[in-house]
Structure formats: structure tokens, C-alpha cells
Amino acid sequence: MGFIRDKRNSSSSTTTSPCADLRAAYNNCFNKWYSDKFLKGHWDKEECVSEWDKYRDCLSKHLEDKNLSRFLEAEGVKRIPAPIAK
């Protein structure tokens, strides 16, 4: 007689997957912008705005964890990690 493992509780792991396509679209756009524009000094204009809006709308519908939604709602908050001494 052994301890039988609980097999359930896998549904919670896919909370944001409905947004996978929108996330991929945003990430692709972001990565391109980061490498081609931001790093080259063209940081004056924000891009990927429509991708971000769609992705964010989706997230706000599917993000179940309240602790995470808190971060989503706090738009524009600048969270600066305390710097590590050089």
C-alpha cells in the first residue's frame, strides 16, 4: 500500500494560455523593437501599442491570481529594483 499521488489540479496552470497568441505577437514585436530601436538609441517613441493593448485586455480577463492582477492594475508604476553595488 503506497501513498497515491494526487493527479488533479492541473487546470490552474493554464490560466493565461488563452492569451498565448496575443502574447506571442506582443513578444515578437517587443523583441524586435528592443534590439532594433531601443538599444540603438531610438527610445523616444513607444511601439507595439496595439499588440500590447490586445494582450493586456486578454490578461485582465484571464489572470485569476489576485496577487498578480494587482501588478496589472498598477499601470505606470515604476518599480526600481534596489541596485547591487558595483
Binding site: 496552470s13 493554464t14 490560466t15 493565461t16 494560455s17 492569451c19 502574447r23 506582443y26 513578444n27 517587443f30 528592443y34 531601443f38 538609441g41 527610445w43 523616444d44 517613441k45 513607444e46 500590447w52 494582450y55 490578461l59 489572470l63 498578480l68 501588478f71 496589472l72 498598477a74 499601470e75 505606470g76 508604476v77 515604476k78 518599480r79 526600481i80
Partner: peptide, 20 residues
């Protein structure tokens, strides 16, 4: 399992990008 961007902010004056 998932990596989701919750938030981002571009400071276009200083060239700083903040992301959560």
C-alpha cells in the same frame, strides 16, 4: 509554464525601460 508581461513603462526622456 507562463511568462506574462504585466506592465511596462518607457521613459522616453531618459531612455529607461521598466517592465514587470
Amino acid at each position: 509554464l507562463e511568462v506574462d508581461t504585466l506592465n511596462h513603462n518607457l521613459d522616453s526622456k531618459s531612455g529607461k525601460l521598466y517592465t514587470t
